[in-house]
């Protein structure tokens, strides 16, 4: 975070000529990276960048013209096609202004509050232990689709989506899992991670 000059990294990318760049930059570093990548004459047609921390809100800071055509990976986009999301986006814009956009972190916060409320209702108490117990297996029809709390580790089952940044700064989904994916925070189900998850 806070790194401001990507000329050297862009130069390295140019030399390596990769098919795709996997970008884990966070925060406003992304702005500098994409602006300078474009200045160096690299567009999404030459090398596609797949980012894991660029959502609709960040695209407004980067400038859609600098990042269009690149890929991002999230669980939710403003364009996600569910009845719940239509309502969510409408309400969000009514409250915060029509020029604002929703994105995955915003939606995740929204889900979290709702799930907590459900768990409290089920437990009939504010006590952390009881709420935790009640939250196991809880489901919620979120804007991104049905999500569920995994009893074993309290992570969420979520659908996974890959999208392409459009000219208007929104993201078009180009691939998604058919349903929510079981959370695997300790990488237990991956062959390549076998040595990492010795537990």
């Amino acid at each position: 975070m806070g790194h401001t000059d990507y000329s050297t990294i862009v130069n390295k990318i140019k030399t390596a000529k990769p098919d795709v760049v996997f970008n884990t930059l966070n925060g406003d570093s992304n702005v500098a990276f994409f602006k300078q990548l474009k200045d160096a004459g690299i567009t999404s047609e030459d090398i596609t960048v797949c980012s894991v921390s660029v959502a609709e809100e960040e695209i407004r800071g980067i400038g859609a013209e600098n990042i269009k055509g690149h890929l991002v990976s999230w669980n939710y986009y403003q364009t996600t096609d569910t009845p719940e999301n239509k309502e969510f986006v409408e309400k969000y814009k009514a409250k915060y202004g029509s020029d604002r956009v929703t994105d995955d972190p915003i939606e995740a916060a929204y889900i979290a509050v709702h799930l907590w409320a459900e768990a409290v209702k089920k437990a009939g108490s504010f006590e952390v232990k009881k709420v935790k117990e009640a939250s196991k297996g809880l489901e919620f029809k979120a804007p991104e689709g049905l999500v569920r709390i995994e009893g074993e580790n309290q992570h969420l089952w979520k659908p996974v989506r890959i999208g392409e940044v459009q000219e208007d700064g929104l993201i078009k989904e180009i691939w998604s899992t058919s349903e929510a994916v079981r959370p695997d925070p300790y990488l237990k189900t991956y062959d390549w991670a076998k040595d990492l998850s010795d537990q």
């Binding site: 806070g2 790194h3 401001t4 000059d5 406003d28 570093s29 992304n30 702005v31 500098a32 602006k35 300078q36 800071g61 980067i62």
Partner: peptide, 16 residues
């Protein structure tokens, strides 16, 4: 000049 290269946000100055 820096608007040409990087981000414009409240914490822009702390980067420099």
């Amino acid at each position: 000049a820096l608007t040409l290269l990087g981000s414009i946000g409240p914490t822009l100055g702390t980067n420099y």
